[in-house]
């Protein structure tokens, strides 16, 4: 292996690592607020790319049906659980079902009018983000204070549902979307595409933004507090349901933007989310599901290991990646102190 190949592999590893990193950040965000290990995060990424691809092929994205289904079921759930208090019922519907329904309408409008690329991009982000409140309302809100294990199982079940719907609405084949920029830069012997640089930039921006938001702003701290103490959060005026809904909506938005950024560099399938999500999860866990910078580092590490092992022994790539994780986990586990739950 010469220096050129090493440089190319490093660049490839950084790009993949950044993709995993975007997932890892969203996972840490959701966990920090809700204690949910949010397995379906990868689906947001996939749905975003698939939606834009459908726009580009002048097809009506399956997202419309997905959003309408979510809106209808969420509204039904609200009516069922809150019909005695019409005011709260309407407020809840306005907060969860309405965004999905409006987004569905928007997607339908943009698709039938065949609008400009930039509008398609913005619509895609809006559509995927609008799924957040409904997913939280339907799956997690009713059991927000259950154990981490129960929440995880529900999370996996939601992943199954979304993947199933993805296959139904988008089909089994993959898509590549148009790049935002065709620029490319040369660094020594390595050429880096403008699109990859966008991915790096967005990743770095998110790491800093999230770390700052949760560490230094009062609102961020309050959001984090809801995970530890739901009653306490309510006392200081933050509704845990609002915090949970907001965190999943934010992560849906991150997923949407990630999907658009990754779409041009990698083929995205309805089930792409699982494996990249799993590797993002590795990063998130290495960060103890708490630290954004360490999670980012973990995700980049996975990307690099993967890139180099796919060069050396591609058949054993996953074996190498997942075996190397174990000592890292052991080291992280032994160097972080656990406070026994009292």
């Amino acid at each position: 292996m010469d220096a050129t190949i090493a440089a190319l592999l490093t660049q490839d590893g950084l790009t993949n690592g950044s993709i995993y990193c975007l997932l890892a950040l969203a996972l840490v965000l959701v966990f920090a607020v809700t204690r949910v290990i949010f397995v379906p995060q990868g689906e947001f990424v996939a749905f975003s790319a698939l939606t834009l691809a459908a726009f580009e092929q002048n097809k009506l994205p399956g997202t419309v049906w997905l959003l309408l289904a979510l809106a209808a079921v969420a509204a039904f759930a609200d009516v069922l659980s809150r019909w005695r208090e019409p005011k709260r019922m309407l407020r809840s519907i306005a907060g969860t079902s309405l965004p999905s329904a409006l987004a569905a309408l928007l997607v339908w409008g943009v698709a039938s009018a065949q609008m400009a690329f930039s509008i398609q991009v913005l619509t895609t982000i809006a559509a995927v983000t609008a799924m957040g409140p409904a997913v939280y309302r339907l799956a997690f809100q009713p059991i927000a204070n259950a154990t981490v294990l129960t929440l995880l199982i529900v999370s996996v079940a939601v992943h199954f549902v979304l993947t199933g719907l993805g296959l139904l609405f988008f089909g089994a084949e993959g898509v590549r979307t148009t790049a935002f920029t065709s620029a490319s830069f040369t660094l020594g012997s390595v050429s880096i595409s403008g699109q990859s640089l966008l991915v790096y930039a967005f990743t770095i921006f998110l790491v800093i933004a999230m770390a700052v938001f949760f560490k230094f702003t009062l609102f961020g701290k309050a959001l984090r507090a809801t995970a530890a103490n739901r009653t306490g959060a309510r006392l200081v005026g933050i509704s845990p349901n609002f915090a949970g809904s907001l965190s999943i909506t934010l992560s849906a938005a991150i997923g949407a933007v990630s999907g658009l950024l990754i779409g041009p560099i990698a083929t995205i399938y309805y089930d792409s989310g699982f494996l990249i999500g799993l590797k993002g999860f590795v990063g998130a866990i290495v960060g103890g599901l708490a630290s954004y910078p360490i999670a980012a580092g973990g995700a980049i590490f996975v990307g690099l290991v993967e890139s180099f092992s796919s060069f050396w022994a591609s058949a054993y790539k996953e074996v190498i990646v997942f075996t190397l994780i174990i000592p890292v986990l052991l080291w992280r586990s032994l160097t972080t102190t656990h406070h026994e739950e009292e």
Binding site: I37, L152, L278, F281, V282, I285, G288, L289, A315, Y316, E318, V319, F322, T323, I325, I326, L329, L330, R332, S333, L334, T336, H338
Partner: peptide, 26 residues
């Protein structure tokens, strides 16, 4: 793996689960 606390253990089980799966196939 059992000396790992917190969320490290479930991920470690995923990790060796994946390793053994791909090893069987390869």
């Amino acid at each position: 793996t059992l000396s790992m606390g917190g969320h490290y253990l479930p991920l470690a089980t995923i990790a060796w689960g994946m390793s053994l799966y791909f090893l069987m196939g390869t």
